[in-house]
Amino acid sequence: MEKRASTLSRYIYTVIVLFVIWLFFVSTLKLQEVLAGLAFSLIIAAFTYPVFTKAGLQNLHPKRVAYAIAYVPYFLWAMIMANLDVAYRVLHPKRPIRPGIVRCRTILKSDTGKLGLANSITLTPGTITLDVRGDDYFIHWIWVQDDVLNAEDEEASIKAASRYITQPFEKFLKVIFG
């Protein structure tokens, strides 16, 4: 369980996020829209901040925001590659699949980071997160690689699977979510 930030910083963080979403939603800078959005953000954040965030304003640290922005094109590229891979498997007449459920481990500590990692895994090459237990992910993989399959013991296979599945994202998510 991670440590919670102070109430005020969590509240302000919730207000900022809600207000930015509102600005995207109305997509105008008229005074009346902005004031209404600000008022409703302040009211709604008062009710929802306990479930909305744990880290508070710490999430808006410039380094984290920069990594989050850099993560978007990286992730989109990985997703396009994943879809071309899926296209190959679907359109190939022999249907080259070798599915299985593997186990791999993450170094992320926070719950939000684990959620982000699980979502990223689900959208990229041939993997869907089946369950998360502590630090371990159980992942349905459409093409289990040889060195995961032929590993001597459990630990070796976990390490091999982690190298393929979780590590490409961890270097970004470790900074973004802590």
Partner: peptide, 14 residues
């Protein structure tokens, strides 16, 4: 059940 061509099921073992 998983497809008969599936190779490994670590979740069941766990």
């Amino acid at each position: 059940p998983l497809w008969h061509g599936s190779v490994v099921d670590k979740y069941r073992e766990f």
